[in-house]
Design a protein around this nucleic acid. Structure first.
Length: 640
RNA sequence: GCUGACGUAGCUCAGUUGGCAGAGCAGCUGAUUUGUAAUCAGCAGGUCGUGGGUUCGAGUCCCACCGUCAGCUCCA
């Protein structure tokens, strides 16, 4: 046996990992949960037949929580079988922060029942049944799971030479690869969280099972921390903050997934739009505005119909008159429109790259169950752009897109980015050689910028491969953000051409790219990232001026005008309320600065500045200096 | 779209076995003139998501629809 420190140990054939831990020391034996043998995590009790490198897994090991949670899933299934004797069992894996198990039951679980099941789990845990592994033949397994059709289905998919193992804990037997903890007694700190329907094998054509989600940890403290984290995420929920700060609404009278931007939210949207448009113009993009509806034929040419049709709103008639039979569609994407701008006049190689940008509203008929606040909507504002260029230019253009992403997302908000190259999906247009070229090109641009990336095989759009960029927010969640897509198809379909230096026609390639993705989703992410406390440049209200008594009212109003002249969004709060009340109101509305004017300040021509979240720490400043400081913060789009 | 839970004042929520629709906050009015996270009093605010049904009587029970939420599937 070779240990992590390089030491070797001789043991009789068939010794277990637990034996190794015991040989090393009693402390390690107590802490041992599982073992990693030749890189694979196995049970402590598993006999080891050959020479191997091994490492003892304790609760500090990265794999430990997975083992715990997988065992917790079995404890859950054991409990469910007690409460619902005939329940069919599907899969029950460990997932990030917890576990789930899918059950086939006649009646879905009720919330009350969930509590009973959790109690039952505690009984299963205190029974301290060992997890016993047994290797069986396929025939034996068929017999053992004769009453479990879901397990049988899984069983039949296993290769003939695969080792089939089953695990027993007390009354519960599962077809399972393992590994598990020594016994159910080690599953101590857990909580069932919710239930939901889930399709068997994730296939919407198959039956729906009832999934129970839970979380499990090694200590009660870790469990509490996790539940606090859930609570923190709930408080940051952009739907909650959006209401508190009066940023936006979604109204039944109009329909789900369609956003009303109220003045505060509209200010944020406008500022972001301006930021990306300014950067676009500086980066050599040109602005265009294109129609929101079009003859349906356009989407036949582009290939969206029928491939994208399930996401498009149904066609509408052109209306009374001779056009009655012409069908129109609301646009779900801008690319065909921008292709038509390209095509509106003959293009020369000297025109390329031609970069057309538009922050445009598009509408997608998303399935109702997928809608979620601002993060998944039906009416989207995309900060869209299409670059028409030669194949030789494409790599450079993508490189420039990556730099724009870096400026507008990473630098501007401090987001940490991660990159995925999504390659050809099963349903696609175009031949494999073209796809091959396109995929290679994207990867070269990333390598040139020395950006590490993962490959999402099969994740590309139907018209081309893409770079999907995710960013990580303040509480560690990752979100889909910018996307850069290469497209050989649309130029083909629209027969786009340019005249080359050789005076002959050539076909350009097209790059689709969005930096924020959609303003809706991005603002939703920003709300949660900042928990509503936007940096000053994005805050709808930047300074709130508070006169202490009516005697400072005129002075305060004059100071508001002074701030506005300096380009600061300032408001006067001269309500007949105590200063404490108005301070509290300003804090709950996340206003970056409150400027208090009392008798002292009025006499001295100063202002007492309270920074958001700073409590009683205040600064008395010269008024012009304060206005200049805020203006500077806005101009530089400072984060702090 | 599918499964489940839930829809009561602007917001957060209470409403018993079916028997007069409530509270706090927000709003309005008045008093108060306030020195850094809630001053006091009064007033107003409801087709209990919508439409049917059961019942002497429905916020409460049943059905359908709309919407929200948690997931599944899908995705910017």
């Amino acid at each position: 046996m070779t240990l992590p420190d390089g030491a070797t140990m001789d043991l009789p054939r068939g010794s277990t990992a637990g034996d190794v831990a015991a040989r090393i020391g009693a402390g390690l034996a107590r802490a041992a949960l599982a073992a990693k043998v030749n890189g694979a995590v196995v049970d402590l009790g598993r006999p080891i037949e050959d020479d191997a490198t091994m490492e003892i897994v304790t609760r500090k090991s990265p794999e430990a929580l997975d083992v715990l949670r997988h065992s917790a899933a079995h404890v859950l299934a054991t409990a469910v079988r007690k409460v619902r004797p005939g329940a069919g069992i599907g899969f029950g894996p460990a997932i990030e922060d917890g576990f789930y198990y899918d059950f086939e039951v006649d009646e879905p679980f009720t919330p009350d029942e969930l509590e009973r099941i959790e109690e039952e789990m505690r009984a299963v845990a205190s029974a301290e049944h060992p997890f016993e592994r047994k290797v069986v033949s396929k025939a034996e397994a068929r017999e053992l799971f004769a009453d479990d059709p879901l397990k049988l289905e899984r069983l039949e998919e296993l290769a003939e030479d695969e080792v089939i193992s089953v695990y027993r804990n007390g009354p519960f037997l599962d077809l399972c690869r393992g590994p598990h903890l020594a016994g159910t007694g080690e599953v101590k700190h857990f909580r069932l969280l919710n239930t939901a329907g889930a399709y068997w094998r994730g296939d919407e054509r198959r039956q729906m099972l009832q999934r129970i989600y839970g979380t499990a940890w090694f200590t009660e403290e870790d469990l509490e921390d996790y539940l606090d984290r859930l609570e923190e995420a709930r408080k940051r929920d952009h739907r909650v903050i959006g209401k508190q700060l009066d940023l936006f609404s979604i109204q039944d009278a109009v329909g789900p997934g369609l956003v009303f931007w109220h003045p505060n939210g509209a200010m944020i949207k406008w500022l972001l739009t301006r930021a990306v448009e300014e950067d676009n113009v500086r980066s050599g993009y040109e602005l265009v505005y294109t129609p929101n509806i079009t003859r349906e034929e356009l989407f036949r040419i582009s290939g969206h119909l029928p491939l994208y049709e399930s996401n498009q709103y149904p066609p509408m008639a052109a209306g009374a008159g001779e056009d009655e039979d012409v069908r129109y569609r609301v646009k779900p994407m801008n690319c065909p429109m921008h292709a038509l701008v390209y095509k509106a006049r003959p293009r020369s190689y000297r025109d390329l790259p031609l970069r057309l940008s538009e922050v445009a509203n598009v509408y997608r008929n998303e399935k109702s169950g997928t809608l979620h606040g601002l993060l998944r909507v039906r009416g989207l504002s995309m900060d869209d752009a299409h670059i028409f260029c030669t194949l030789d230019q494409a790599e450079d253009e993508i490189f420039l897109c990556l730099e724009q992403v870096d400026r507008l997302v990473r630098q501007a908000f401090g987001f940490e980015l991660s990159f995925d190259v999504s390659t050809r999906p099963p349903e696609r247009l175009g031949d494999d050689a073209t796809w091959e070229r396109a995929e290679a090109l994207l990867m070269r641009a990333l390598e040139r910028k020395e950006i590490p990336f993962d490959v999402d095989a099969g994740g590309g759009a139907f018209y081309g491969p893409k770079i999907d960029i995710k960013f990580r927010d303040a509480i560690g969640r990752t979100w889909q953000g910018p996307t850069i897509q290469l497209d050989f198809q649309l130029p083909e379909r629209f027969e786009l051409e340019y005249t080359g230096a050789d005076n002959r026609p050539h076909r350009p390639v097209m790059i689709h790219r969005a930096i924020y993705g959609t303003l809706e989703r991005f603002i939703g992410n920003l709300i949660e990232h900042f928990a509503g406390a936007f940096p000053t440049w994005l805050a709808p209200e930047q300074v709130r001026v508070l006169p202490i008594t009516d005697a400072q009212r005129d002075d305060a109003a004059a100071f508001v005008r002074e701030l506005r002249d300096a380009g600061v969004r300032a408001h006067l709060d001269d309500r007949s309320e105590t200063l404490g009340y108005r301070i509290r109101d300003g804090e709950t509305h996340k206003v970056p600065y409150m400027a208090v004017l009392g008798e002292r300040e009025t006499e001295a021509g100063t202002v007492a500045v309270r920074k958001r979240g700073a409590g009683r720490k205040q600064e008395v400043l010269d008024r012009a200096a304060f206005a200049e400081r805020v203006a500077e913060e806005i101009r530089t789009r400072a984060l702090e």
